[in-house]
Nucleic acid binder design. Structure first.
Lengths: 227, 227
DNA sequence: CGATAATTGTGTCCACCGGACACGGTTTCA
DNA sequence: TGAAACCGTGTCCGGTGGACACAATTATCG
């Protein structure tokens, strides 16, 4: 399976020509997930989208888990190339690029939970994130932890701002606030903190993303300047 | 279903006495998830644990999604009561408490992804988090965003440090580093940033959690002091 | 007291899921 | 010209969530 993630090794020569490709299967599965969500991705449906039997897929992919891993790495893609910049701007645009990737394929939030095999594209993302901090003065562990903190925040905001199936347009806190106000209408005395916080809210676009990023980067700056 | 989350309303009077309770079902499901993971929670297995047929559960719970929502809110529990303290210490211990909750029921990381119905316990967690910041000078939206950033980081670290089925003992970066070093052994030139970062790592316990929290709180402090 | 209506747990059935396996057709190599 | 390798298909299995009809149980009403 690692072999699949890192490029298919040997096209055999003996039998009939394969009628499909791993790339085609992965692409069909991604298209399916993009339109109908990750739950709609089943072997049957992927095969049907390619006009084949589901069992034919197992000639190219060991199982569903590996297919999802392939989908994930391909859909993640490579981080866009950005010019060298000071660590803060570099990490900020890197985070926004990552958010854009989640925005393009919201199901990535589901397929990247839990322990899993990391593909080359995902590793490249991590590499670029870490490299934004190479000249910051932080040591290796700090760099990794810092990137982890940023990706965690991006994930959280994306997860809460992107409706799972198709929706995207980042209306950040839209749902949570509406769900909250619904509850607080009758239970406001039970959640006093939330109640007063909700009253002084300014419905700004994508605020949660940049707010948290600014906070994290400010914190990193403190750490870096402290030396 | 909301009714279920917020307390069962009316025990009817006509037919035979119910032989189970929603609490019992939820408890059995939680126990099952604690030992064998969330994937092991099926209607059949939950019913079998209570020596009943799976269809009997549907008299108490509308469906599996609602059962998982119940499990989630119950397992989350209420945040421990802590004495009033300045916002920074309050938020820090709140975050550590939240991490402990995820440590106790690792499957919460899976059951709390995507759009879902928020239960009273989960809302209480949010309320306590926000209330830690009431005297910080931040406005309501900022308070919510700040708490969201913290929970995002806690989730990320927990997710990567807790092995899904049963394991717990927070050996934070253990897996990611081992998986990374495995790849970097042969592909180090392809991920130069990761390669050098891995070389200067100090295998400290649970470092990722406190590191990120310190960074976030430092950033909040900057924002607050700026006024 | 007896009939009725409501509610319980069960049994049966369905579509769908991931996957094991055997089979016949196709292609290349010895 | 076999023989060996590989492809796509069909069949089968255990498991999933859930709809539905059914007999048994219980409280209420006449």
């Amino acid at each position: 399976m690692i072999n699949l993630l890192w490029g298919d090794p040997l096209p055999p020569t003996r039998g009939p020509k394969p009628a499909m490709t791993v790339e085609g299967i992965t692409g069909a599965a991604i298209a399916l997930a993009d339109t109908d969500g990750l739950d709609a991705v089943s072997m049957q449906r992927v095969a049907a989208a390619l006009s084949f039997t589901k069992m034919a897929l197992y000639r190219y992919v060991p199982g569903k888990a590996e297919l999802v891993a392939l989908m994930t790495d391909v859909a993640m893609g490579l981080p866009p190339d950005r010019p060298r910049r000071p660590w803060r701007e570099a990490l900020m645009t890197w985070a926004l690029d990552l958010y854009a990737a989640f925005e393009k394929h919201p199901w990535l939030l589901l397929s990247t939970v839990g322990r899993r095999e990391l593909g080359p594209n995902e590793l490249t993302w991590m590499d670029h994130g870490v490299r934004a901090l190479t000249e910051s003065g932080l040591n290796g562990g700090q760099q990794l932890d810092a990137v982890l903190t940023v990706v965690g925040h991006v994930r959280t905001v994306a997860q809460q701002s992107l409706s799972m199936p198709g929706g995207s347009t980042g209306v950040t806190e839209e749902h949570i606030t509406s769900a909250l106000s619904e509850v607080l209408a009758t239970q406001s005395e039970r959640f006093p903190g939330l109640a007063v916080a909700m009253r002084s809210i300014d419905g700004q676009q994508n605020k949660g993303l940049t707010f948290g990023l600014d906070v994290i980067l400010d914190g990193l700056e403190v750490l870096i300047k402290r030396g």
